[in-house]
Write a protein that binds this DNA or RNA. Sequence first.
DNA 1: ACCAGTTAATTCGGCGTCCAAACAAAGAGT
DNA 2: ACTCTTTGTTTGGACGCCGAATTAACTGGT
Lengths: 405, 405
Amino acid sequence: MTAATSGPRLRDVNRVAVLALIGRHGPISRADVARRLGLSPPTVTAVTRSLIEAGVIRKVDDGVPRGGRPSELLAVVGPAGHAVGVKVAAGRLTGVRADLDGTLLDTFSAPFDEAAVNPFEALSALLAPHLAAVDDAPLLGIGLGVPGFVDSRTGLVEAPLLGWRHMPLRDYLSQLLDVPVLVDNDVNTLAAYEHLYGLGRPYDDFLTITLGQGVGAAVVSGGDLRRGGHGAAGELGHLPIDPAGPPCHCGKRGCLETYVCDGALVEQAREVGAVGPDAGPADLRAAADNGHAGARAVYRAAGARLGTVAAGLATVLDPQAVLVSGEGTLAWTHLAEGFLTALRAGMFPPLADGVSVHVDPWDDTKWALGAAALVLRAPFTMNAEPHADAIRARLAAFPGAEVAQ
Amino acid sequence: MTAATSGPRLRDVNRVAVLALIGRHGPISRADVARRLGLSPPTVTAVTRSLIEAGVIRKVDDGVPRGGRPSELLAVVGPAGHAVGVKVAAGRLTGVRADLDGTLLDTFSAPFDEAAVNPFEALSALLAPHLAAVDDAPLLGIGLGVPGFVDSRTGLVEAPLLGWRHMPLRDYLSQLLDVPVLVDNDVNTLAAYEHLYGLGRPYDDFLTITLGQGVGAAVVSGGDLRRGGHGAAGELGHLPIDPAGPPCHCGKRGCLETYVCDGALVEQAREVGAVGPDAGPADLRAAADNGHAGARAVYRAAGARLGTVAAGLATVLDPQAVLVSGEGTLAWTHLAEGFLTALRAGMFPPLADGVSVHVDPWDDTKWALGAAALVLRAPFTMNAEPHADAIRARLAAFPGAEVAQ
DNA sequence: ACCAGTTAATTCGGCGTCCAAACAAAGAGT
DNA sequence: ACTCTTTGTTTGGACGCCGAATTAACTGGT
């Protein structure tokens, strides 16, 4: 009835903290929330009541009684809001719609000419049909994952792979479609997904490494995605391995990417005669699957190279886990041995046991889901991301309020 | 009069934010504080008034008038509180007392037997004379920098170099001396110093690399020191460089430390005949100073090795600056060329220009000052470090309140 | 010298949030 | 049936923050 959400400023820290805790740590009781956040029980009651009235969370179950009144377990209501996420790649867009709890609602895909006079036109045309509310649940915003550097302050995109320089993607689309738009590096979006809904849920400190056409990484530390001082954190493909190594398209020599990306693997396999002159990544995989020793050696060496790099990063950053993802994991059975051996061998012995390795089977929609997660996690984060308040306001506008619980 | 500081909970977010801004960004006007933090002017007036009454900040100057009422520039009052900082090393303790604004008050040093039955006894005996208040200003706490891993949650210390395993240094000393005690890795304490008072002041994202007996690093990202998932972040000496390299005392092969620490440099110089069989780091430096080509080549190679590693870290973490410190910087004139060349060569071209490199001349007391900074910055940080509230309470107890301003 | 314009800082009233204390609910153990 | 334990709620009071209006202090133009 009365807009309980309308403080003079939407910076209600505790409200966001409670929602974040419920969102991230699954069904949880009010008493638990109070203890974990150091809040008083009355405060938690008040906050959760208003969140329930807003339709954002609800009681899902009774907790097991432990000698007292049984607790009520609260969880977020998935259909209270949804978001569109898009992975932008050279030549193709992959998009999804997802619920507040990460449930995949819808997927779509289309060719994309990133070199068009105005590539944003095509993007907005593709997105337009997906902007409507679903069952009265509002669209919270659009998330975009782009292969390049994104300055989260200005929203400008630098994407050499797409030929984009200083592109104001965020603000342009946001104004055109009148919807909050968040843009980030594509590997960062994947990490956002893993953190909120995927393999990274249990961790506050983890690395995501992606393998495919290129090599990428994202760093989640202290529970937050680290973007670095210029929005370029996570670059892994151009990590210097050997100053005297093969030339890289970036102008340097011996970048990691010249050793372990798809193209480099195929090239190496060609040199040892494991595949023919016109072979692609799939052919190399097939050769290794069929037991070709040369093909397997290529994978083992690449896995070891990557494992050593991962060990170095893990040594410095001390993550709880390393997640490996991307198209390249299709060949994980062949990469695993080299990677894991090198990782263990390269880490300081007492710390090696503290790092778990998970492989997320490749799925193109996951990247897009990650872009959506960028939006979906905005209501749960304290830090003032550009459109966070606008997204929160949209979530609060969910008319599912006042329905008899 | 009325204890303005005594909210029901000391979690007064804005109060801490204002104090942090004034502490970190020097003399600053109220209007500036309001703009930067997004607070209303009345709020800033109220908060600063209570901080002034508490004696923690004061007006230091008038700002330059820009066509209106001149602003009053506020800054922290150094003598409002002080802290003791100690660098713990094998065989020797180095300690300092420092004001709230980082002014060095006092230094002391003593031999230390880390292998004694109870090494903490000696530590507490050394500290006891320094626990008294100075001019009524309270001792806020003691900071300790230890060469090893520190779990900031449990306070347990793992320090192979000292032979310490699972040592409850923090809680033991805190209880014994009845003073808040904070313990962290020694390189982390240095980074805390740099961030608060040193070369890192302008940055929120930077790396600190230390060079000396060993090689270390600390990561400041998003304005906070990153400790990793197990309190071991920053380990750099055991970064794997070459799986087939020389054996390291940690049991692995080809760790960075086997190439660029003091001992390794001297060893390499011996092999090329640049120094005699019993030479030490100082002798190697002297040889290089005198123009010995072999000695200079050793430094150049080591600098390049370190520069390549720094380039790799900077590529992934995207810092605004890299600070180099530690005893090894005594030979920086010889290391610089190799380091800077490799750093530039190893970074992704568009990003290389965004990283500045600063060398902090080596000074043993800086490490200890860093340990003190661990305590001194506690009142300025939001995150709930173990003793942060206790430290804030002590600062608030400063009787310098009520003095006529 | 005076007034207009501008920026800084303060006072005041009101609203919203949080907490402590007391209370109600609901089950376990004896 | 009783007590103990744990969860969740209600109530009253204290505190913090904001918007609006006010005071303060300086620059620049005439």
